[in-house]
Each structure stands twice: as structure tokens, then as C-alpha cells.
Write a protein that binds this DNA or RNA. Sequence first.
DNA 1: TAGCCATTTGAAGGAGAATTCAAATACGCA
DNA 2: TGCGTATTTGAATTCTCCTTCAAATGGCTA
Lengths: 201, 201
Amino acid sequence: MAQRKSRTDRRIDLIEAARRAIIRFGIDGVQLSHVAEEAGLTSGAVLYHYPDLSELLVEAQHAGMERFYEQRLRQIAALTDPVAKLVLTIRSGLPTGPLDPDVRLLNELGGAAGRNRVYGVLLTSLYDRQVSMYQSILDTGQALGVFRLTTDALSISRNLVALEDAYGYRITARHPIIGPEEAAELILSYARTVTGNDLLH
Amino acid sequence: MAQRKSRTDRRIDLIEAARRAIIRFGIDGVQLSHVAEEAGLTSGAVLYHYPDLSELLVEAQHAGMERFYEQRLRQIAALTDPVAKLVLTIRSGLPTGPLDPDVRLLNELGGAAGRNRVYGVLLTSLYDRQVSMYQSILDTGQALGVFRLTTDALSISRNLVALEDAYGYRITARHPIIGPEEAAELILSYARTVTGNDLLH
DNA sequence: TAGCCATTTGAAGGAGAATTCAAATACGCA
DNA sequence: TGCGTATTTGAATTCTCCTTCAAATGGCTA
């Protein structure tokens, strides 16, 4: 028998297991047994904690998104230079490679968000928060005279997040030419143009 | 009994039916019975033409992609002015609204392309062709002196397609602010900056 | 240490979907 | 018109997954 755990500990495990299962089988392809296997439990045990699988899936997606976002925030928190912040933020929004679990998870939502309101809201809220993240970097840089923005910071930020998203898809789909490095360079080329800064650091 | 049709006619119908079913239930959620219902047939009839549902789904995705791409090509073929071409191309890459079937279908592939090589290849090939489409418009504009590109046309084109893709997702996910118009304006703002052209026509 | 209770198992049942196939049907062609 | 055949149906079968639940398990507390 699998090790017994407290209600909260087990729920945390299950959310992690669901995350892995979604990546393997897709948000519409996950089955109770997939989650159970990933967690090292039986289907019954999963059902004991989550009588409704779809609720667990939402929680898994939510947790994955929060982790992704918090991680990005934490990385730039250590920096003060707007240039360094911007460059690092761009890189941290891209997958490390085709198998990057965080981005793979987010990508699963793309299609589902058009059919499922909950997923649509989740994804939209993540997008908006990432936009704010960029916006505050750009505003600061502008105020310090480091950036000379060609348009409003909001529009630029929206485009930056959009570019990250799109290249995340390209990379996980294994584009033969566009990998993490190439994508970063493409986004940076945009960022250089609109900030009027070489973004060397 | 449903009207009898020739092998080829029925296969065309089924591909259309599968396309609709994918949009409704997701690429990993479609069932034989969904396709059958959309086609006005029984599951047995579907199986008679496509013993393997997954092959039908691939064909449906392929057909949807080709149609989407051909449609865009056809639209710009009527124009000669690079500015008009560029503006129209940007608009034609965006969904008309959250329910746009062509984009909804493409979005279904996003996640699956990370798990399924066939879908990955399909999606990558569409991306590359769309990039070429933009590239030829930009090259022409540059040659005519209408555009003064800030970077190489290839990078700009990659970013333009990436932006379309990403805003396609945002729109189908029903972002409360970013609709077709707003997305077009965001992409145009990028295009203006990198072409040095106001893109008014 | 004994007993309680939350957690987990595993088997049984049931629902739903895929698959098979014999029979029915309608179209094309002689 | 009538034959032959490709297409479609619908029922039976099998398969897979979800759901339920009684029994087992093991940690916690008194």
C-alpha cells in the first residue's frame, strides 16, 4: 500500500500528479487512472480526495500557472537594472526546450480555453498579469531615461507577452530552427526596436 | 437512411464533420459518435470510410489548415500595394471573433503538437509558410522603397506570425479587452515601427 | 497498548464508446 | 428493368473507464 498521507499533503501530491498527467495525455485526454498512476495510488484513492476529476484538473492548471508566474516574479525581484530585468524576463517566459513542463502545461490550455470558460478566465488572467509585469519594467526604464519607448508601454507589453506565448508553442512543437535561443533573440530584436536600447548588459 | 454518396464525396463530408466535432469537443475529446452526428450518419458508416478515427482527425486538421492558408493567399493576391497587402494580411490572420472556426481549429493543435509529432509537423509547416508570405510582402515593400525595415525581413515576419497566433488564442479565450480590432491595432503598431511606414491606406 | 478513524485498496457493477458484422438499401450500369 | 455492388444501418459484442463500496490498513491519541 502506498504511504498514507494527510489530507492536505495528499492533495498537493495529486495536483502534481495531475499536472504530469495533463502534460502526457492532454487536458481532454487525462483519465483518473493516469493521475492515479502518476501519484502511485489507485483510482479509488484519487476519487476519495477529488470526487470530480475536472476539479482536480482545474486546480492543477491553476497551481502550474501560479508557480510559473511566481517564479518569473522572483527572478526579476533580485535585479534593479531595467535592462537586465527586461532581458531576464523575456528569457524566463520561454520554455527551456520542447519538453519544458511549465510551458507544456500552459499550452494545453490554449484550445480548451475556447471551449471552457474557467480555463479561458485562468489563461486571460495570467496573460494580463504578465503584461503588468512587463509594463512596470518598461515604465521604470522610461522614467530613468534608459528606455525611449516608441509607443505606450501597455501595447509593447501586450506584444511582448504575445511573442513569448507564440514562441512557447513553436518550441514545444519542435520547430527545427526556432529554439529557446532563437526565440529569445527574435523577441529581443523587437524589444530593442521599441525601447531604443541595445539591451546589452 | 442518410443520402448515399460516393466514396470521395463522403470522405469530404466526413472531414468537414470532423472539423466541426474537433472544435466542439477538442482534438482529444472527439468521439466517433460526435463525428457521425455532425455528418448525419451512424458510427458504423464513419468507420466504413475511416477505420481509424485518428487518421480522419489528422486529415481534418490538415484540410482546415490548408483552407486557412489558401484563403489568406487568395486575399492578398488581389492587391499590389505592399502597404495594403501587409495590413490585409495582418487582419486575415486574426479570428473574426471568439467563435471563428478556422482559428478555433488551429488552436486545438497547440497543446497536441507537443505530444504528437504529426500535429507538430503540420503546425510548424503552417507557421513557416505564413512567415514566407509576410517575408515576400516585406521584401517587395523594401525593394520599392515603401518600407525601411529596422531588421531583416525574416525576423520581422516570424514575429508578425507569432503575434497573430498569440492574439488568436487571446481572442478565442474571450479576453475582455483584446478583440479582433484591438489585436489588429497592436500588431499594426509593431508593423509600423519596423517598416517605418504609417500603414495608412 | 488498544481503539478509533482517516485513508487506501481492490473487486464488482454499470455506463458509454469502439468495433464487428449480417442484413438492408439505393445507386450505377448493363 | 433488373443485377451487382458500394454504402449504410443497427444490433450484438467487446473494451475501457468511471463509480461504488465493503474490507483492510496504519497512524494517532487517549
